[in-house]
Design a protein around this nucleic acid. Sequence first.
DNA 1: TCACCTTGCACCTTTGAATAGT
DNA 2: AACTATTCAAAGGTGCAAGGTG
Length: 404
Amino acid sequence: MLDDNHLFQRAASSAYASMAAFTAAANMYNSFYPTSTNTNMDPVNYFGCTDMKREKLDPKVCVKLEEMDLWKRFYSLGNEMIITKTGRRLFPNFRVSVSELDPNAKYMFLLDIVPMDDNRYKYHESSWTISGKAEPHIYGRYYVHPDSPQIGSQWMKQSILFNKVKVTNSPMQNPNHIILNSMHRYIPRLHIVEASDSYSMRTGPLSTFIFDETSFIAVTAYQNDQITKLKINNNPFAKGFREPTQGKKSNSKPLKRLQSSLPLDKPGKYDENLHRPYKSDSSLLSINSSSPPTQSTMHAVVADSTTSTYLDNSVGDHEQDSEINPMNFTTSYNHHHHHHQFSSNSFYSNYASDPSSMIYNPAYTYMGTPSNTIPSTSTPMHFNPYGRYPTSVYQTNNYNTSFL
DNA sequence: TCACCTTGCACCTTTGAATAGT
DNA sequence: AACTATTCAAAGGTGCAAGGTG
C-alpha cells in the first residue's frame, strides 16, 4: 500500500503542471482502491480519500461567482454550451473570487462538471423537454487550475479564472477535456482543497461550491436562438457575427454570416436590475407560452430569479405569478420564504449561520445535520453520490458540503 | 425523414516573440 | 544592460452552413 501511495503521489505531483497526468494518477489510485462497486460513482473523493471522514474548509470561506449578471441572463433563457470533438470553452467564463482562506495554507482549485439529473433532453417547439433516460456520465475528468497549489493569500489576491476548461463529446481526444453528453443537463462544481502536497490533497479539507446560475445543457449546435444571440453579443471571439453598429462606417462587405433572419438582441430586452427578461418581451415569453408547465417541460417560474429556488413539482397553484425560466423544471414560490442573505449580492458563503437560511442551504437540506457532521449514507437526504441533483430536492444557489 | 453531429470556413481575439524606444 | 512599449504574425476561439450519419 505504501508503494502504491508513493506511486500515486509521484504521479499526482506532476499534475501540478499537467492535469492529464494528475487525472491519470487519481484514476490509477482509484483503480487500486476502488471506492465503490458502482463504477459510475462520482469521484468527488478524487484523491483516494474513501474510508475516512473528510473535513471541510473553514466555514467562513466565501466564494463569489464573477459576472453573475451575465450568467443570470443565460440562465434565464436556459443556457447551452457547445461541445465539440476538439473541445470547446465555456461561456460565460467561470470566474470566482474567494475570501477567508487561511493566507498561509496551500490550496488547490479544481473544476468539474456533473449531470444535474438522469434525463436526456430535446429542444422541441422552443422548449426543452425530457426525451429519455440519460447516457451514463464519465466521471474522473476535472480541471485543475494551473496556479494550484498556491497559498491562500495568493488565491485571494485576484479573481480566479477557469477559462481554459474545455468540454468535449469525444472521450478519445484530449484527456484534459471534460466529457459531456449532448442534450444532457449539467452544472459545474468548484472544489477547493487545502493541500500542501499531493498526499494531503487526498486527505485535506475539501469544500465544494455550486452556483445554479451556471447550469446548462450541452449541445453540438445551439438550439435556442436567444442563446446564440446572447453568446454572439457577449463573447469577444464571436464579434464577427455581430451586427455592424449603426452610424459606424464599415469598410467591409456585408457578412454572409450576418444575413441571418434572427432578430437582433436589442438593448432593453433585459432588465439589468432584475436580471431577467422583461415580461413584455413576447419573444422571450413565447418560449413556453403555448404550453402549461408540466413535469417533463423545462420551464418554470421564478418569482425572483435572483433567488432561484427549486422545490417540488407543485406547479399549478403558483403559476399565475410566475415567470418563464426554461432552466427550471418546477414552480418556485420562494417569495413564501425568507430570501437568504447570499442571493442579493451574489456573494456566496459555504456556511449558513442564520437558521432561517437552512432551508436554502443543502448542507443542511441534504444532510439534515450541521455541516461538519457525517451524514449517514443511508439517509435519502445524503448528498447524491452520483453528483446528480434531483429536481425534487435541488434547491440551492450554492452550497458547500463535505464528502466521505 | 428526422434529429443530431462533423467539418471547413470567415472573422475575430489572444498570445508571445521580435523589435524599437527609453 | 535592463526595462518597457509597440508591432505583427501565428495560434486559436467563435458561430454558420452544408453535408454526413444512423
